[in-house]
Simulated assay, not measured.
Amino acid sequence: MRELLHDVLLLQLEYSPQNTPAMQKRGRLVRDEVAAWVRAQLPAIEREAPGEIADWKVQAKDATGNKSVIPWVRVYSAARSPRPTEGWYVVYLFGAQGDRVYLSLMQGTSRWVNGEFKARPQAELRVRAQRARDVLSAHLRLRPDLVEEIALKASRTTLGPAYEAGTVAAFEYSLDALPSDGVLGADLIFLASVLSRLYEIAPVALDEPDEIADALIAVEKSAGKARRGQGFSLTAEQRTAVERRAVAVATQHLVEQGYAVTDVGATQSYDLDARRGEEHLYVEVKGTTGPWTSDSEIIVTKNEVDLHLREYPNTMLLIVSSIELDRAATPPSAAKGELKVVHPWRIVPPNLTPLAYRYLVGE
């Protein structure tokens, strides 16, 4: 494997989008020989990795149309990451300048939206990568030689920066100091075992923000579905810190707009009562640690939906995203946040997705 990595890196110096002899050789090495070596490690991965994953697979790619600037070979669970755009996996990424190769634990960098793949924003990828680092911290600390940032130096493609933003942790191998096959095999088994723990810890919440993950896991638990992992959920104290920060940002915005504001979240099915002259608004506030995108979602209760349908158009939704949560503080603290205003807030029933049902069994 050491020699294979060496040869692929040297061929990176002859990169061309065309299928030149050098690129043909690179393709054979990546798709056939490197992939074959990785595939030969699967029995050891299945034996050593925790959890019950019986569908480990290997996939290699060096071209999508034109030859790829960054060829790769990944190890993954077929059920949990059916495509490289989905889920989490371990992957060899060859630097564009041929000076280094990374073995990276990373995430799919695209999502399927309205019939096509769209790139995830880099800010979102970084947040999701940090979330994974948080829940895997005890395992990642076992290998201080892991790095959290990689540099593929791929200015000719948008995929390079996406791969960099999406990386959780990686082993970095430079061309002039490639390790032995024994070390390469041990590193691959270790990182696959960390991936296995990620699959186990967060089976529900791999692709969800903290707040959505909390709701999904709570619903499953209330329905009697015991889960082995906790997902990327917030503690009660962390959740309170995020909620308080969101309400503070929302309140400041409303006061600056001339409203008299009362916090009624503890007793009503909305959060802030805002009045300005004869105007009376029922304001819903949602806070999230993640970035806000066009397809982001929030959790609303049935009572909240009923109230805002009834009171429209005197309704407002204030979303405070990208809240910075200090999980290490005691108690946890939250700061900053970006505000999105929806006013009036019309709840569109087709946009509601049920998370659970109450069912009367009868006799």
Rank of each mutant, 00 (worst) to 15 (best):
R39P: 00
P84R: 03
M106P: 01
R141W: 04
T235R: 03
P121Q: 08
W56S: 00
V91R: 01
Q257D: 13
E208Y: 07
Q97M: 05
Q257M: 05
V219L: 02
L13M: 08
L325R: 11
L140G: 10
E211V: 04
Y102R: 02
E86F: 04
E284P: 00
H6F: 06
V194R: 06
N66G: 14
W37E: 00
E311C: 05
S104H: 06
R133H: 08
R2E: 10
G185N: 13
R358G: 08
E52H: 07
E86D: 14
I323T: 15
S269H: 13
K221E: 12
V264L: 09
P354T: 09
S174M: 05
P349G: 13
T330I: 14
F171T: 04
S110F: 03
M23V: 07
R245K: 09
N351H: 14
E363G: 12
S77N: 08
N19P: 02
A154Q: 08
A241G: 13
A165Y: 04
K153A: 15
M23A: 10
E279S: 09
K221W: 04
V135R: 08
K225V: 15
E297V: 11
V264H: 03
I53P: 03
V69I: 13
Y163R: 01
G27P: 05
L309H: 08
L191H: 05
L5C: 09
A260P: 00
L339I: 14
D271F: 01
A154L: 13
S196Y: 01
D207G: 12
L175W: 03
E324R: 15
R358Q: 14
T301Y: 07
A241I: 07
S77H: 05
R83P: 04
V73G: 00
Y92P: 00
D55W: 05
A329K: 14
P179A: 09
A162G: 02
E363H: 05
A329L: 15
K153H: 09
R120L: 13
Q41P: 00
D32G: 11
E220I: 06
Y359P: 00
H253T: 11
S333D: 14
A165H: 04
D7V: 12
S110H: 11
R100E: 13
A119E: 14
Y312S: 07
L93C: 02
P121V: 06
Q97C: 11
I299A: 15
A329S: 15
G258M: 02
V320F: 04
